[in-house]
Simulated assay, not measured.
Amino acid sequence: MAKDVELLLCPVNLRHLETNTRAYDEAVSMAKRRRAKLIVATVAPEMERNLNIRDSEVYWSQQLAKFLNDNPPDGVQVETVVRKGAIHRQIVKLADERKVDVIVMNSANPKVQDYLLGTTASHVVTHAKCSVYVVRG
């Protein structure tokens, strides 16, 4: 049985959004065109380096809500998800669990100048069961 609405996943690295929101912008645009639901997800580290963050899931949920408030996905139904663990594994796991149709993500950490896909994007492209749309920074 086919799903009624297409489902897109856009993982965002909240530590680097000040330099690059192109994948998120593209995901919102794509969701509008396809009349799809958008999952905006972030992955918190297992061990938080910032000792001022007592509950990383709460902290990153608040940061994700702030990001969406600052960058509203007008006209798109959005769900937010915060996971903990290895970024590349959690993206693939979430996409599989939710039966996502397309993952829209950045190619690499914006601080890394590279001619190849970043390790996270490369892992996701290789292991995801759905299509992956990689946005170059």
Score class of each variant (00 low, 15 high):
residue 1 M to A: 13
residue 1 M to T: 03
residue 2 A to Q: 03
residue 5 V to M: 10
residue 6 E to S: 08
residue 6 E to C: 04
residue 6 E to Q: 07
residue 6 E to G: 02
residue 9 L to W: 00
residue 10 C to T: 00
residue 11 P to F: 01
residue 11 P to T: 02
residue 12 V to N: 01
residue 12 V to E: 00
residue 14 L to T: 13
residue 15 R to E: 15
residue 17 L to F: 11
residue 18 E to I: 05
residue 19 T to D: 11
residue 19 T to Q: 11
residue 21 T to R: 04
residue 22 R to C: 05
residue 24 Y to D: 04
residue 24 Y to F: 13
residue 25 D to I: 01
residue 28 V to E: 01
residue 31 A to F: 07
residue 32 K to M: 03
residue 33 R to E: 09
residue 34 R to I: 00
residue 35 R to A: 10
residue 36 A to C: 07
residue 36 A to E: 01
residue 37 K to V: 11
residue 37 K to A: 12
residue 38 L to D: 03
residue 40 V to Y: 04
residue 40 V to Q: 05
residue 42 T to G: 01
residue 45 P to Y: 09
residue 45 P to A: 13
residue 46 E to W: 09
residue 47 M to G: 05
residue 49 R to D: 07
residue 49 R to P: 10
residue 52 N to E: 07
residue 52 N to A: 05
residue 53 I to Q: 03
residue 53 I to N: 04
residue 53 I to A: 04
residue 54 R to F: 10
residue 55 D to M: 05
residue 55 D to G: 02
residue 56 S to G: 02
residue 56 S to T: 14
residue 57 E to P: 01
residue 57 E to C: 12
residue 58 V to N: 09
residue 60 W to G: 00
residue 61 S to A: 13
residue 62 Q to N: 13
residue 62 Q to Y: 10
residue 65 A to W: 00
residue 67 F to V: 02
residue 67 F to L: 03
residue 67 F to Q: 01
residue 67 F to R: 00
residue 69 N to T: 15
residue 70 D to V: 02
residue 70 D to F: 03
residue 71 N to F: 09
residue 71 N to H: 15
residue 71 N to L: 06
residue 73 P to L: 07
residue 74 D to L: 11
residue 75 G to I: 06
residue 76 V to M: 06
residue 77 Q to M: 00
residue 77 Q to V: 02
residue 79 E to N: 09
residue 80 T to E: 05
residue 81 V to N: 11
residue 82 V to W: 03
residue 82 V to P: 01
residue 86 A to N: 14
residue 86 A to T: 15
residue 88 H to S: 15
residue 89 R to T: 14
residue 89 R to C: 05
residue 90 Q to L: 14
residue 91 I to D: 00
residue 92 V to P: 04
residue 95 A to C: 12
residue 95 A to W: 02
residue 96 D to L: 11
residue 96 D to F: 09
residue 97 E to W: 04
residue 98 R to E: 13
residue 100 V to G: 05
residue 101 D to M: 12
residue 101 D to K: 08
residue 103 I to Y: 01
residue 104 V to E: 05
residue 105 M to C: 10
residue 107 S to C: 08
residue 108 A to P: 02
residue 109 N to W: 06
residue 111 K to R: 09
residue 113 Q to P: 03
residue 113 Q to K: 15
residue 115 Y to L: 13
residue 115 Y to H: 14
residue 118 G to P: 02
residue 118 G to L: 08
residue 122 S to L: 07
residue 124 V to P: 02
residue 125 V to K: 00
residue 126 T to Q: 14
residue 126 T to H: 14
residue 126 T to E: 14
residue 127 H to K: 14
residue 127 H to L: 08
residue 127 H to T: 08
residue 128 A to Q: 04
residue 134 V to C: 05
residue 135 V to C: 07
residue 137 G to E: 05
